[in-house]
Nucleic acid binder design. Sequence first.
DNA 1: TATATTAGAGCAAGCGATTGCGCATTGTAA
DNA 2: TTACAATGCGCAATCGCTTGCTCTAATATA
Lengths: 345, 345
Amino acid sequence: MNGGMVTEKITKKVSLGDVAKELNVSKSTVSRVLSGKGRIGEETKQRVLECIERLNYRPNAIAKSLAQSKTFNIGVVFPADKELSQIPFFQSCLIGVCEVTSALDYDVVVATATANDISQLVRLIHNNKVDGVVLTRSIVDDPAVAFLKSENMPFVLIGSSTDSAVVQIDTDHEAACAELTEHLLRNGCKKPALLIGSRKHIVNKSRYQGFKSAMHKKYTDAYSEIVFDDMSSGDVIERAVIDLLGLDCDTIICGDDYICSRVIKVIDERGLISKSGIKIASFYNNQYLKNHIPPISAIDVDASELGIAAGNSIVNLIKGELVPRKMLLGYTLSTRKMHSVNNVY
Amino acid sequence: MNGGMVTEKITKKVSLGDVAKELNVSKSTVSRVLSGKGRIGEETKQRVLECIERLNYRPNAIAKSLAQSKTFNIGVVFPADKELSQIPFFQSCLIGVCEVTSALDYDVVVATATANDISQLVRLIHNNKVDGVVLTRSIVDDPAVAFLKSENMPFVLIGSSTDSAVVQIDTDHEAACAELTEHLLRNGCKKPALLIGSRKHIVNKSRYQGFKSAMHKKYTDAYSEIVFDDMSSGDVIERAVIDLLGLDCDTIICGDDYICSRVIKVIDERGLISKSGIKIASFYNNQYLKNHIPPISAIDVDASELGIAAGNSIVNLIKGELVPRKMLLGYTLSTRKMHSVNNVY
DNA sequence: TATATTAGAGCAAGCGATTGCGCATTGTAA
DNA sequence: TTACAATGCGCAATCGCTTGCTCTAATATA
């Protein structure tokens, strides 16, 4: 707008003291108009605000942190395990958390972690860099949970925990899996199989429950179940599928997109979809799998919504407000049908 | 280990002053043994270290930041645009950045941004919360780049820029696309088409160059090219594919996984893969697409490697060291063949 | 032995905010 | 008119750590 840019660039950052000096008022006064705490005359207030604007003053968050012993940062733990690092679920969570916390004037600092290595998280906490943490997945005996509790650090978990003291935000996986299963049974499925990862992941336990209860309602025991302890190997999954095919299984419910993609591979390779009419269902199926022909029925979860809820909860928790101990968010059952009518599913 | 836990939990955080007092030395001394700067006698040093250990003292990173006017945080800008939020590429980048910065005692704070909205980034910078920034995608006339330059904030870009002053870390997309194209031409492809997103994304310009130069080498003009301005709509992509099929195109090179998945859908729906033998190639193809039958040839990029390089560069930049202005990292051409021999590709 | 170095450690002033307390000044009730 | 409360602001301590400078004692040099 004007030619003053150059000189402006050269000037050092202006501090609260600078604007106080400029106005011949005390730093307290400036600080108080900024924070809204304390008693300030209307006129002074306006003068201060004008000056702040004019000098382009930006409060230094670090100094504020030190004075208040708060960081205004919340930590997000991001799984870095090989088999999880490709799942967009966490990415969406993160975006959701950022969205709310940013609006509440908090920032998000991330630490990656694996099931065995939480050293980045430990560093973060020990350096006092965050006021609270959100965990984005849950495993049983999670060392991260244990650590955060021992450090007395507020945290919320996206997922479920057997520890009723932790604040949990989750999809109702049990209900979701039950609903998916029932849908399949109502639509011609005779002998479904459930293919999920290790029960170390609590989500898998829930799904297993949902699956069983749906089968039970139908008074049938004609199902199979397979649980892997090591999802990272595609080969294991593929062998399991081959086994299932030998057991007259007519539908495979996959625990996540990764499993689903491997299942598809085995079936496609053998051209079995069209021949034997074996069908596939899944959870979380992402945009790639959504385009699969024939379509896959799936439980869709809005991960960014989980992130948003988690962000709100952790901030409230930090502020000492009451937060629900367990929140269950909705899901969507997408039952996709073929456009050509003869393969309704 | 012992029963002292309870009392330890109750005690307030111990500060540098506490350990100084305990040892009857000055705070400077403690500070200096921690930082390694200044002259300290060997014996005192040992005493201090022992005491730190005994009292379980953790330096307060905030106070350190204030004293040194450094935050030891680096910002990572994460795209939140709808069509990008599902791409695991950025997630891997992030993990890579975290890995190095954590080792160098820096933390990562993320800000999401879209092509139009960089307000989270602005907040981050204005609050003085980071010492440097890494951008994870490049668009022409990026407002984020302009902003960071105007704020005089060090940053590196994962991607390429026409602005030769910015530090860039990228895959050689031009070479990669040329190599992929040549591979296809050598293997029976007669009339390939390039399907990429808007040239606002610099990566697309590069690929276009690579494609053209490969075609030129082969002295052929028998190609089609299609560029979308709006990748977010799957319908647009699908219509484009139908157009291409009408043009006798025998191979489609997709700019990314999202495009690829839509292309696959159209082709699968029509059963064209087997019938007309149309083939698909892609960039970045992820674990889901990797399982596709028939296989897809693709350029693989190690995103976490890009993140690692970016993390190193930004830290060096912050420290005032020299960093290469432009780094090109490797890529892998995965030419997948069918296991059944009659469809080599 | 006298003098110049140097090693080891402390003092105190920052860094840029927040905040409890105290002191005028004004408004209000007695 | 007097006493008291409310209002508006400033003083200075504090948060926990860094760092330039100073001082002393030990060591090296002449």
